[in-house]
């Protein structure tokens, strides 16, 4: 094997229909003891990140989205929602998770456990 090690166990969670998230907004899900923010962009992309802002714990799912960024509602720090990288601030990057859409319109969240 080469490159990054394979996860030992992959858990896939069905988060339900994508329409649960208003278009262009985010929503909090709690999965396996973790709080995640799942974002549904106007361009039809889904992204998942940790729910709490690394700055002072602001609720990222309540932020405004645009150009692939989320703006935290508390102090306006920006993060790239596909990579988690901070933009214009030097906070820790957000943890990100893979989410996919099924043909039936459900969201699947992939959690890899070591």
């Amino acid at each position: 094997m080469n490159g990054s090690p394979m996860p030992l166990q992959r858990r896939i969670h069905n988060l339900g229909p994508v329409t649960r998230i208003p278009l262009g907004e985010g929503k909090v899900y709690e999965v396996a003891g973790r709080a995640l923010a799942v974002f549904r962009t106007r361009q039809g992309m889904l992204h998942a990140t940790q729910a709490a802002c690394p700055h002072r714990g602001g609720p990222l799912a309540d932020g405004v989205l645009g150009s692939g960024l989320v703006v935290c509602p508390l102090h306006g720090f920006k993060f790239d929602i596909s990579t988690g990288s901070p933009v214009g601030n030097d906070c820790r990057a957000l943890r990100t998770y893979r989410v996919e859409l099924t043909s039936g319109g459900d969201m699947l969240l992939f959690l890899d456990e070591p």
Binding site: M6, P7, L8, Q9, R10, R11, I12, H13, N14, L15, G16, R20, I21, P22, K27, V28, Y29, E30, V31, A32, A35, A51, A52, G57, P59, L60, A61, D62, L108, L109
Partner: peptide, 25 residues
């Protein structure tokens, strides 16, 4: 929207329940 007042971040409490499909690798 039905989710307009969806619970924000309060990790101590139950959130949106998620059905789980385990995939052993």
């Amino acid at each position: 929207h039905p989710q307009q007042f969806a619970r924000a971040l309060e990790p101590s409490r139950e959130k949106e329940p998620a059905a789980e499909l385990a995939e052993a690798l």
